[in-house]
Design a protein around this nucleic acid. Structure first.
Length: 861
DNA sequence: GTAGGGTTAG
C-alpha cells in the first residue's frame, strides 16, 4: 500500500478549517483588578471572579468567591454558572461541589441555567443520585429541554441505560419534542446489547425526524450504537455514508471503530477517502490511523504519518505520541523497542497514557526489567499510575523471577485505592498464573471483588496450561451454571489444554459444546480447533475445520494449518498452503515464517528453506528473529551441512542464544560429529551452566560414538551439579482417560497383559527383520541387558497398551514428552506392519505416522 | 447550561 500524504502545507493547521482545532482560549494579560480596593463590592467582586476564570485561574476565582462569602456578599447567578462550567471543564468536581455549597449558603434562588450546570457537574463526577436529586427538585417551570437532556445523558453515561430511556419517554409525555442533544443522549443509552431493540425503534423515529443526517453528533452516536451494542460495522458505515455533515469527528470515529472491530485496512481506506474529500485530520484522526497501522504492521504508512505529524506540529500532542510509541513497538522487529522508546523520550510532556504505553511495550516484549524501572521512575514523578498502568506492570512481573516485585506493585494499588478494580485484580490472577503459581492465582481469584468472564477465563486457562483438566472443567461448569458464558476465550483455553495432552476425545466433546453454543464460526475458536486437532494427531480433522472457515481465515488460521502439516511431515502440503495464502493476498507474520521454515526442515528441503529464508525478508518484510535462525540451523544441520550451519551461526547479526546452539548440538548428535558438538555444548553451558539439555545431548553424542568414558564423565558432572534430566514418559488416551507410562513401568493395573503383548510383538517383529539398535541405550552394559531395557521404553509400553485396549481400524495415538528414541522408532515401524494398525506418535518435536512398516518422517527427524 | 473522537486484564 502506498499512500501519499502530500505536502503538509495542504493540511497545515496554520490554515485550519473553521470546524477543526478550535484554539484553546488565548491567555490574556492578567488584569490588575486585584490591586484595586473594592469600592462597590458585589459587582466588582463578580467581575474579579470572571477575570480569574477568563485567565484560566480557577483556584484564584474560588478564593475570591470564598472571601466574598466571608464578608457576607455573593456574586450573581451568571457568575455561579460560569464558575460551575469552569469546574466541569477542568474536571475539578470537588471545587464544583464547593461552589454549590456557597450558592446554597447565599440563599439566592438558582435559575435553570445554574441548576442544569449542577446536573452536569454531578453527572460528570459519576454521582448520578445527586444529579437526580437536583433534577427532580426543579419545578416544572424550571425544568426545560436542557435539563431533560442533561439528566438523560447522566443516566446514559452512568450505566443506567433503562433509566435514561424511561426518562426520555417521560419527557415525550410531558410534551417536549427532543432536539439533537436529547437524541444523542438517548442513543448512547441504546448502545448496549440489552437496549439494542429500543435503539432500533428510536432509529426509526429519527429517520422520520431527519435529525440523523443533519447533525454530526447524532450520526456519531448512531455509529457507536451499532458498533458497541452489536458489533454491526455495516450499519454503522451505512449511517456514516448517509450523513450530510461529516466533520472530522465523524470521520475519526468511523476510522476508529473499523480498527476496533478488526478491520484496520478499511480504516486506512476511509482515511484516504477523508483526505480526498478535503477534510483535515486532527490529532485524534492521526492517532486513530496510526493505531490502524500498528494493527496492520504497516510501518511505511506509520512512518509517513509520523513525519507528517512532525511537520504539522501534532507530534507534540500526548495522544499522538502515545499511538506512535505503540506503533513502533508493534511494527518494529520484536525485541527492538528503540524507536518506540525514542518517541517516548522526545515527547514534550507525558500523561498516564504515554507512560502506560511505553511500559506496556516493554511488558509485552519480554522487557520486564525496563518495564519495572520505568514504573519506578513514573511513581517518583507527579503522574499517578492508573489501572491500565498496573495491568501492564503486573504483566511484566509475570515470571517466576519477578513475581515478588509484582506482589509489591500490587501493594501499591492498595495504597492508591485501585486494588478493587476488576482489571487490576484480573492482572494479579494472570501474573500468578503465568508464573506457574496456580495456588496463588486461585487465591487471588477467590478474593476478587467482582468476577467477570475475563476473571474466569484467566483462572481456567491457568488450570488448562497446568494440565489440570478436572479443575478447568469444573470452572467451565460453574461458568455455564451462572448463565454468563462460556465465551470464545473459555473454549480456546479448554481446547489448548486438551491439545497439550493430546486428549482428542475431550477435544471432540468440547467441539460438540462449541457447536451447541453457536460459537463454531468464531475465528478464535476455529483456530483453537485447528490447533487442537492437529496437536492431537488428526490433521485431516484440523483441515476440515480450516476449510469450513472459508474467507474468515486469518493469519493465525493459515499459520496453524501450515504448522500442522509441517509437524505431521506433510511438507509439500504445508508449502502449498503457504503459496495459496500468499496468492489470496494474506500477509504472513513472523510465526508463519517459522512454520514454513520448519516444514522445509522436517521435509529435508534444504534449498527450498534457504529460498524461503531469503524471501521472508525480501518479499514480506519480516526481519528474522532468533527462532528463524534456529530453524535454519536445524534445516542445514539436519541435512548434514554441519559446517555450513556453523558458519551460518557465526554470520548472525546478533549473538546466538541457547536455542540455536541446542539445535546445532542436536544436529551434531544425528551426524555423530563429536568435535562440533563439544563446541556447541560449550557455548550452551557458557550461557546457562546448569542446562541439563546440553549435558544430555552431549552424553548421547558420546554414547552413540561409543565413548563411554567421556559419557560417564558427563554423568558425573551432572550428578555433582545435581542436575536431572526430565524423565521420559509417554501417554495414551483410552476411553476418555489418559494413561501414562515411564520406562519399565509396571504400575498399570493391566501391566501383566501389557508385558505379555510386548513379548509377543518382540518375537513377531524380529521375524520380520527388526534388529534392536542398542546404540540408543546410554549405559555401558551387556548387549542382552540393553535390549531388555530398550523393549520397556515408555513409548513401546503405551503402544502395546493401545493395541490391547482399542479395536482394530482405530489409529493408535501415543504422546511422548521427549523425542522418540531411534530404536523405538524402528520397532514401531515393524509393529505397524505386524499388527496392520496405524500408529501415530507425537514427540516433543513432531508427529510420526507409522503405517505398513513406514513412517511419515522418512526416518528424518 | 445539555452531545461526540485515543491506551487496558483473558
Amino acid at each position: 500500500m502506498n499512500i501519499c500524504l502530500s505536502s503538509p502545507a495542504k493540511f497545515s493547521p496554520l490554515r485550519p478549517s473553521s470546524r477543526v482545532l478550535v484554539p484553546s482560549s488565548p491567555k490574556q494579560p492578567s488584569p490588575s483588578l486585584s490591586l484595586q480596593p473594592p469600592s462597590n463590592p458585589q459587582p466588582l467582586n463578580s467581575r474579579l471572579i470572571t477575570a480569574h476564570l477568563d485567565a484560566g485561574r480557577l483556584r484564584e476565582a474560588i478564593s475570591a468567591l470564598d472571601s466574598m462569602a466571608w464578608s457576607g456578599s455573593y456574586p450573581d447567578l451568571v457568575t455561579y454558572a460560569l464558575l460551575l462550567k469552569s469546574c466541569i471543564r477542568c474536571r475539578e468536581f470537588h471545587l464544583g461541589r464547593h461552589v454549590r455549597r456557597r450558592l446554597e449558603e447565599s440563599g439566592i434562588e438558582p435559575d435553570s441555567v445554574v441548576l442544569n450546570s449542577l446536573i452536569s457537574l454531578h453527572s460528570k463526577s459519576n454521582d448520578w443520585e445527586e444529579a437526580e436529586e437536583v433534577f427532580w427538585s426543579m419545578g416544572s417551570d424550571k425544568r426545560d429541554l436542557v435539563s431533560w437532556s442533561a439528566m438523560i445523558s447522566c443516566y446514559a453515561t452512568n450505566n443506567k441505560e433503562m433509566e435514561a430511556i424511561a426518562l426520555f419517554l417521560d419527557m415525550l409525555q410531558e410534551g417536549f419534542s427532543p432536539n439533537e442533544y436529547c437524541y444523542t443522549a438517548v442513543i448512547r443509552a441504546c448502545s448496549t446489547a440489552k437496549t439494542a431493540r429500543i435503539g432500533d425503534a428510536i432509529f426509526g423515529f429519527l429517520m422520520k425526524d431527519g435529525y440523523f443526517d443533519s447533525d454530526a453528533c447524532v450520526g456519531c452516536a448512531l455509529i457507536d450504537m451499532f458498533v458497541k451494542g452489536r458489533g454491526d460495522l455495516r450499519s454503522s458505515l451505512k449511517v456514516f455514508n448517509k450523513m450530510s455533515e461529516r466533520n472530522v469527528v465523524a470521520w475519526t470515529q468511523i476510522i476508529t471503530r473499523c480498527t476496533e472491530l478488526g478491520h484496520p485496512e478499511e480504516a486506512v481506506n476511509l482515511f484516504v477517502d477523508m483526505l480526498l474529500e478535503g477534510c483535515i485530520p486532527d490529532k485524534f484522526t492521526i492517532s486513530a490511523v496510526v493505531s490502524a497501522c500498528s494493527d496492520l504492521g504497516l510501518l511505511p504508512l506509520g512512518l509517513q504519518l509520523h513525519s507528517w505529524a512532525m511537520r504539522s506540529g501534532l507530534h507534540s500532542d500526548v495522544c499522538v505520541g502515545c499511538c506512535l510509541v505503540d506503533m513502533y513497538r508493534k511494527c518494529g522487529a520484536c525485541g527492538s523497542l528503540s524507536d518506540s522508546r525514542k518517541v517516548f523520550d522526545q515527547m514534550p510532556s507525558h500523561n498516564v497514557m504515554s507512560w502506560t504505553a511505553v511500559i506496556t511495550g516493554y511488558a509485552q516484549c519480554d522487557g520486564s526489567k525496563e518495564a519495572v524501572e520505568l514504573f519506578l521512575e513514573m511513581i517518583r514523578g507527579p503522574i499517578r499510575p492508573n489501572h491500565f498502568t498496573f495491568a501492564s506492570v503486573l504483566k511484566a512481573c509475570a515470571s517466576s523471577i519477578n513475581v515478588e516485585t509484582g506482589v509489591q506493585v500490587y501493594a501499591h494499588t492498595v495504597k492508591l485505592g485501585l486494588s478493587t478494580d476488576n482489571c487490576v485484580g484480573n492482572s494479579l490472577v494472570s501474573m500468578f498464573a503465568r508464573s506457574g503459581r496456580t495456588e496463588d492465582a486461585r487465591k487471588a481469584f477467590e478474593s476478587l471483588f467482582d468476577r467477570n468472564m475475563v476473571s474466569y477465563n484467566t483462572i481456567l486457562d491457568a488450570y488448562s496450561k497446568n494440565l489440570n483438566s478436572e479443575e478447568a472443567f469444573s470452572l467451565f461448569h460453574e461458568i455455564e451454571s451462572m448463565g454468563m458464558g462460556p465465551d470464545a476465550y473459555t473454549f480456546a483455553s479448554l481446547l489448548s489444554g486438551a491439545a497439550s495432552v493430546g486428549a482428542i476425545s475431550k477435544g471432540e466433546l468440547i467441539h460438540g459444546r462449541i457447536v451447541k453454543s453457536g460459537l463454531h464460526f468464531n475465528e478464535c475458536v476455529c483456530n483453537a480447533l485447528i490447533s487442537m486437532y492437529s496437536k492431537c494427531g488428526n490433521v485431516e480433522a484440523a483441515f476440515r475445520v480450516f476449510d469450513r472457515m472459508g474467507d474468515k481465515k486469518n493469519v493465525i488460521s493459515w499459520t496453524s494449518m501450515i504448522m500442522g502439516f509441517a509437524k505431521h511431515g506433510f511438507s509439500e502440503r504445508a508449502l502449498e498452503t503457504f503459496r495459496e495464502m500468499i496468492e489470496l493476498g494474506m500477509r504472513p507474520n513472523e510465526i508463519t515464517s517459522v512454520a514454513v521454515l520448519s516444514a522445509c526442515s522436517h521435509g529435508g528441503l534444504a534449498s527450498k528453506g534457504r529460498m524461503y529464508f531469503e524471501s521472508m525478508q525480501k518479499d514480506h518484510g519480516i526481519t528474522p528473529r532468533m527462532e528463524h535462525y534456529a530453524c535454519m540451523v536445524d534445516l542445514l544441520g539436519r541435512s548434514g551441512s554441519l559446517v555450513e550451519a556453523f558458519e551460518f551461526i557465526s554470520s548472525m547479526p546478533f549473538e546466538a542464544n541457547e536455542l540455536v546452539w541446542r539445535t546445532f548440538l542436536g544436529a551434531c548428535r544425528i551426524h555423530g560429529n563429536v568435535e562440533l558438538g563439544k563446541k556447541a555444548a560449550g557455548m550452551i553451558l557458557q550461557k546457562d551452566p546448569s542446562d541439563p539439555a546440553a549435558y544430555i545431548l552431549l552424553a548421547n553424542l558420546y554414547a552413540s560414538s561409543g565413548r563411554w568414558e567421556d559419557m560417564a564423565e558427563i554423568r558425573k558432572k551432572m550428578k555433582l551439579k545435581n542436575l536431572t534430566k526430565e524423565a521420559g514418559c509417554s501417554w495414551i488416551e483410552v476411553k476418555d482417560t489418559i494413561f501414562k507410562f515411564h520406562v519399565g513401568d509396571s504400575s498399570h493395573p493391566q501391566a501383566r497383559e501389557i508385558f505379555n503383548e510386548l513379548d509377543r510383538l518382540n518375537t513377531k517383529i524380529k521375524k520380520l527383520g527388526y534388529v534392536p539398535n542398542t546404540d540408543f541405550f546410554l549405559h555401558d552394559v551387556e548387549e542382552e541387558q540393553k535390549e531388555q531395557y530398550l523393549f520397556q521404553h515408555s513409548e513401546k509400553l503405551a503402544v502395546a497398551f493401545g493395541l490391547i485396549s482399542t479395536p482394530r481400524p482405530k489409529p493408535i495415538r501415543v504422546f511422548k514428552n521427549l523425542r522418540v528414541c531411534g530404536d523405538c522408532h524402528s520397532a514401531i515401524k515393524y509393529i505397524s506392519m505386524a499388527t496392520d494398525r496405524e500408529i501415530v506418535v507425537r514427540d516433543a518435536n513432531r508427529f510420526h505416522h507409522f503405517k505398513d512398516g513406514k513412517c511419515s518422517c522418512n526416518d528424518y527427524w
